[in-house]
């Protein structure tokens, strides 16, 4: 098959595309795994509120919850457009 590859040219193998896509999806899923159930809803509502004042993209808001020893920190990141 190595020889065949040569003739087939540079076409990217579909399995490696699948692997790359899965690595991204799974990393995302796992980052959400330990979050409380209300996080997606909270994210959506925060986005709504922000959009009332500034025109931002749907993916311009990201929130994450980090746990320290005795407290949790809710981190909110908003990318505002220029101007």
């Amino acid at each position: 098959m190595k020889l065949l590859d040569f003739f087939r040219g540079e076409r990217k193998k579909s399995a490696s595309v699948a692997k790359e896509r899965l690595q991204i999806i799974v990393a995302h899923q796992r980052s959400q795994r330990d979050q409380p159930d209300y996080m997606p809803m909270l994210e959506r509502e925060l986005l709504e509120v922000i959009r009332r004042y500034v025109k931002v993209d749907r993916d311009a808001v990201s929130i994450s919850l980090d746990k320290d020893d005795d407290c949790s920190i809710l981190e909110l990141n908003v990318t505002l457009p220029k101007g």
């Binding site: 098959m1 193998k13 579909s14 399995a15 490696s16 699948a18 692997k19 899965l22």
Partner: peptide
């Protein structure tokens, strides 16, 4: 898998 059209077990 050998043809590159299926995820390998290592993947």
């Amino acid at each position: 898998v050998d043809y590159g059209d299926m995820l390998t077990l290592e993947d």
